[in-house]
């Protein structure tokens, strides 16, 4: 469905942010991308969202090459990025301006209820907590019902309790709308708890070095042995990638471990 085909991204300043990145995401799948800081995770999502252009290779959605923001692809930024001059409801309706008024109101109401903020519709963004703002940001991206939702470390700035509850929220939303999710995170537990498949990245240049098909049924027990063992596998791959980096040796690209 979403396919990233040998994509390179070199920034104008010469930084090689991505090299030969390959990734195919199936419809309705939840894919998590983990990796340390600066390994090109945000770059990957920005390319997939059509905010930046690839240097080489291409990204396709159902065969259609993505070169500019696409109506079927939503993006949740690392920060909420709510527009402070719009209320919560207006923020969520921001991407729906081409819809008739009734439909817009209905979509906004539905998604507001889904993220548990129905009573906050008329609040200003400044009146929200960080977790609430992030929920609104997710609601805003989901309101137009995109087929693919890209999330860039959406919970990284939140405390552990809020993060866990928002992860549940995200799964609820996924159950309700079944979007394809690509979730970038540096929280291995988050990846193990949420994803069907986890990809591990390594920096300079950014590329995938490992891939895990988790195959754990939902609902998952966050502290259960299945999630724990997946977590350990991912951590080991990450650790390996770090050591490999220190010793300067090359790991096999995208090898399933």
């Amino acid at each position: 469905m979403l396919s990233i085909e040998s994509v390179d991204k070199t920034y104008p300043n010469g930084t090689e942010a991505l090299a030969r990145a390959n990734l195919g995401v199936k419809e309705g799948e939840i894919v998590a991308v983990v990796g340390g800081s600066g390994c090109g995770k945000s770059t990957l999502l920005r390319l997939a969202a059509g905010l930046d252009r690839t240097s080489r290779g291409r990204i396709r959605l159902d065969g259609e090459t993505i070169e500019a923001p696409h109506p079927e692809v939503g993006l949740v930024f690392q920060e909420p990025r709510l527009l402070p001059w719009l209320t919560v409801a207006q923020n969520i309706g921001f991407g729906l301006s081409d819809r008739p008024r009734e439909e817009r109101a209905r979509l906004v109401r539905e998604v507001l209820e889904r993220v548990g903020l129905a009573d906050y519709a008329e609040r200003w963004p400044r009146e929200l907590s960080g977790g609430q703002a992030q929920r609104v940001a997710i609601a805003r991206a989901l309101a137009p019902r995109p087929k693919v939702l890209l999330l860039d470390e959406p919970f990284s700035s939140l405390d552990a309790f809020t993060r866990a509850s928002l992860q549940e929220h995200l799964l609820d939303l996924w159950e309700a709308f079944r979007p394809t999710l690509v979730l970038v995170t540096h929280d291995v537990e988050e990846a193990a708890f949420l994803a069907d498949r986890v990809l591990v990245m390594r920096p300079r240049p950014g590329r995938f070095i490992a891939e895990f098909e988790l195959g754990i049924t939902r609902p998952r027990d966050r502290y259960g042995s299945a999630v724990e063992s997946a977590k350990r596998k991912i951590l080991r791959a990450l650790d390996l990638s770090l050591r490999g980096q220190r010793e300067g040796e090359e790991l096999a690209p995208a090898a399933a471990i």
């Binding site: 109506p71 930024f77 527009l83």
Partner: peptide, 26 residues
């Protein structure tokens, strides 16, 4: 970053000016 919010929702240039730039500079 604010402008990118407009871009991700594919606002036309006039809409970007009206819905993002004007309120931001007001």
């Amino acid at each position: 970053k604010t402008v990118e919010v407009g871009r991700i929702f594919r606002l036309s240039t006039p809409a970007l000016v009206r819905r993002i730039l004007l309120p931001a500079i007001l």
